[in-house]
Amino acid sequence: MAIRVQATAFDPGAEVNAMHDANVGVGAVVSFVGYVRDFNDGREVSGMFLEHYPGMTEKALGKIVDEAQQRWPLLKVEVLHRVGALEPAEPIVFVGVASAHRQAAFEACDFVMDYLKTRAPFWKKETTSEGPRWVEGRESDHKAADRWK
């Protein structure tokens, strides 16, 4: 498993390709990439700053990945999250899951994202047409995470 929290850009395509990792037991790779949009909650967004809790962030992500590995038979899990300043169209987050069969990979990827959204200490601040604003948490994210209880 690999957890990376970084201020520099990454290439989602290269990350997906690296998931197979020359492991001939891997039959399925599922990945999720989240991007910065140029519009949110009725306002144009020209940029974003991602704050996090250094130390806790890595621990929280590690715990989420551990839990995914206990629930599904996974061969590799990778979580990569940007922090600092980002522009629209830049990838924010990458979650890659490799397993022998597709169902475990689909479910585990969904699970990791739901838990990351509700348990990992990241906060988004958008630069909008009407000034900066902190993004508010969504009830729908908590409902999605509750599905896995």
């Binding site: 991602l50 906060w123 948490g137």
Partner: peptide
């Protein structure tokens, strides 16, 4: 100590306690 907890969590000497709004990563 860098793990999510409830408000009723006991604290011990030297602990690191953090307060923050709902997380919004991903």
């Amino acid at each position: 100590n860098q793990e999510l907890c409830s408000l009723s969590e006991p604290v011990e000497p030297g602990d690191e306690v953090a307060f923050f709004p709902t997380v919004t990563g991903g």
